[in-house]
Design a protein around this nucleic acid. Structure first.
Lengths: 215, 215
DNA sequence: TGACTTTACTGCAATTCGCAGTAAGGTGAC
DNA sequence: GTCACCTTACTGCGAATTGCAGTAAAGTCA
């Protein structure tokens, strides 16, 4: 009666399908890829492979070097079968967690400066993440991919992250110009700016597209 | 020794700052707003207000109607103070959870059809979420906001969601045209398309911008 | 008046997280 | 050559969160 397989289990199984790893190596690898699609705690990355072994989807063997031993996990045939079966199932809807947006939702409880600071932090974080993805990916052009045969997947995956982080940076810029027209955070209601946004929303136009240019 | 306050606690406190609610009402309200920035289980929305009471940030009073009673939670002055203090702190980085992107990362373990199906599901989910946000927000134009004085916040908040869901839909379109050039999911490595993407990434150009038009 | 939905919760087991702790091996500086 | 610090390689535990099932009254519609 091992505990049941979760999406996190399959995300580890997916890594094991590439090559055998130790749990420690899995945490490092997760930081380069998994974290952008399925962010999980380091702790879980140590317990999930054990669960996979219990289910017979992976095996663990100890490698010894000096006084120290490491447990290397390898995917089994059953593991590959289970992974392939999972690939054919329907994925859960995407979910975003953004504390800075909570601050916007409750902005009336703080100053406009508080709000702008929160949004700036989100933009800085996004810019930093953008750079991280860029660093990893531009090196692929020089043939520096640890798994060259996977470049088509890594790069297409990265495009989403870059678009997302770019969107965040650009949206914060837009939001700040809008907020700059506010005298306070509280009780403004339907301002001219808000009405303009609502009209552009109604026509399904992006609020970012025309960056304050006249037609 | 009540358990400590989390971001989730403050997200509930933020709702209580608008007006008193029952836990049940909080779950309904969370579905309209909180869920897009701080998605939490319904269960938690029942326990968090209790924690706020333990901390003295809210009070609970029973209202009786017939045989049934409901517990209405009201923010205290301490609660408002704590909320305002929280608004001035730095938010955590944004985080995205997208199982469909995991499928892309591990696509070599399934067929191109599996991959396209997963991406289509994500696009459909995003389109559905887009519609939900649209429905809530276009009604504001007719003056149908439950808290008219908060329209400026709700609408600016909504613009982010719309941009995000639109990005997902558009990126999936792009990803699918790229994938359509693949004969298999496995071992392709640096294809022509991948190289083109990498070059465009290098120049920080969006892969979505010019939708296959010549300059 | 019977069936079904909405309102209004609680209990509990399973899952996940954050943090602290342990310990060996490697690296560079003085 | 030894001290400090970083990396590798984990485990334990309490706290936070989830998912699911269960309870029950009130409202709705036919």
């Amino acid at each position: 009666m091992p505990s049941r397989l979760t999406i996190s289990s399959f995300s580890i199984l997916g890594l094991l399908a590439i090559q055998p790893w130790t749990a420690y190596e899995l945490t490092k690898q997760a930081e380069r890829s998994l974290r952008f699609a399925w962010p999980k705690s380091e702790r879980l990355l140590y317990s999930e492979p054990k669960k996979l072994v219990e289910h017979g989807l992976a095996t663990a063997h100890r490698e010894v070097s000096g006084q120290r031993s490491r447990r290397v996990y390898t995917i089994t045939d059953d593991g590959r079968t289970a992974l392939t079966a999972w690939m054919a199932t329907s994925p859960q809807p995407p979910v975003l967690e953004a504390e800075a947006l909570l601050r916007l939702l409750f902005a009336e409880n703080g100053s406009t400066d508080d709000l702008i600071a929160a949004l700036d932090t989100m933009a800085d974080d996004a810019a930093e993440l953008y750079d991280q993805v860029m660093t990893i990916n531009t090196s692929y052009l020089d043939g520096h991919h640890p798994f060259p045969q996977r470049t088509h997947l890594s790069v297409l995956f990265a495009t989403f992250q870059l678009e997302l982080f770019d969107l965040i940076v650009k949206w914060v810029e837009f939001a700040k110009t809008e907020i700059s027209t506010w005298s306070t955070t509280e009780g403004l209601g339907l301002t001219d700016g808000t009405e303009a946004i609502l009209n552009s929303i109604k026509e399904r136009r992006s609020v970012l597209d025309p960056p304050n240019k006249n037609p």
